[in-house]
């Protein structure tokens, strides 16, 4: 049970991200929360492909191949990280536009229909 510390870390990261999204009012902090949630999901994908005592799936030409961790979850995590960078860039540019338009990043000061 105590060997499941990576899964506990995943759960902790996701909870921290959800807490930031629920209780913080600053848009930059909410973007940071989304990024923390993303890293939690990436860590979950990585831990699913690990075999105990294994090395990275890179061959060195030795005759005796050691136990290797699975490459497919790592490749999909690479895809997920790049998509995360793209989404982060889009979110930050939208935040810059919001700040320029309203002069504030506080959620409750952005104004609704009454502008």
């Amino acid at each position: 049970m105590i060997a499941n510390i990576p899964y506990l870390t995943v759960a902790g990261l996701i909870i921290i991200g959800l807490y930031t999204l629920l209780f913080k009012k600053n848009l930059i902090k909410m973007v940071i929360g989304i990024t923390i949630l993303q890293s939690g999901v990436n860590l979950f994908l990585i831990t699913l492909g690990y075999r105990m005592g294994s090395v990275a799936p890179i061959f060195t030409g030795n005759a005796d191949n050691p136990v290797m961790s699975y490459p497919v979850p790592q490749a999909l995590t690479l895809t997920s990280i790049v998509i995360g960078v793209a989404v982060l860039a889009l979110m930050l540019s939208l935040v810059i536009h919001i700040y320029r338009h309203h002069g504030s990043l506080h959620v409750s000061k952005l104004g609704g229909d009454d502008q």
Binding site: P6, Y7, A11, Y50, M52
Partner: peptide, 19 residues
Amino acid sequence: IVAVFLMFSALFMHPFGEP
């Protein structure tokens, strides 16, 4: 509630390192 369930399922998932 969500945190308790996530922690609970993280503790009792199948063991780490055996996909």
